[in-house]
Amino acid sequence: MIDRDTVLHVARLARLELSEEEVARLTIELGAVLEHIETISRLDLEGVPPTSHVIDVTGALRADEPEPCLPRERALESAPEVLDDGFAVPSPQA
């Protein structure tokens, strides 16, 4: 079962701030959903391979040939903060 500390830990991994109310609600909701999901833990899956790609395709590679890049104005046009022709953020070191 999922507890408050786990919710806070997972929220930190997901870079999600949660209000007190959200933490409380998610603790209950996630617990309830996980309870339903737990049914798969009772299945015997010995020797069953995992499927990550449902249709078997291989070899879809790209030739090493250049394609046009975006003009810088387009690349930056949706950025919340632009500085020195780049995407500005609060410094990680700060």
Partner: peptide, 9 residues
């Protein structure tokens, strides 16, 4: 008063 970093992709 804020320290900024700039990303060049």
């Amino acid at each position: 008063g804020s320290q900024r970093s700039v990303v060049d992709f």
